[in-house]
């Protein structure tokens, strides 16, 4: 399995839009997230930016720890809407399970 999937951003559009590319990796979302968990949600957004589709699927259980509390979205300086990106990734993973 290749490490990056070049057309991943295109595939994700249906579930997440393309806000992930607004993110400049400042880490505000990870700092404010009540989960305090291994750079979440920033790490997931970075995976999208670099096309690490497989990494997202391998770590997908983490997405469901998200409380959809919206604090990250409220504080993101780039209006990347990280909370909604995580929700979009859940939709992508669920669709992927159901296809398999």
């Amino acid at each position: 399995m290749s490490l990056v999937t070049l057309d991943f951003a295109e595939e994700l559009k249906e579930y997440c839009g393309d806000n992930a590319f607004e993110c400049f990796n400042c880490g505000t979302c990870a700092a404010i997230c009540p989960l305090v968990h291994d750079n979440f949600p920033r790490r997931m957004i970075r995976y999208i930016q670099v096309g690490a589709r497989q990494k997202i699927l391998e770590n997908s259980d983490e997405l469901w720890r998200c409380l959809h509390c919206g604090l990250c979205t409220q504080t993101c300086p780039r209006e990347a809407d990280p909370g909604e990106i995580i929700l979009g990734l859940k939709r992508f993973v669920v669709a992927n399970w159901r296809k398999s």
Partner: peptide, 25 residues
């Protein structure tokens, strides 16, 4: 208000432990 903290409830079905940690805080 706009900066309220979550009560942890949404994690209840996936991880009651995580939900309790957030709730206690």
């Amino acid at each position: 208000g706009e900066f309220t903290s979550c009560c942890g409830g949404p994690a209840e079905s996936i991880s009651p432990r995580l939900s309790n940690e957030i709730m206690e805080k």
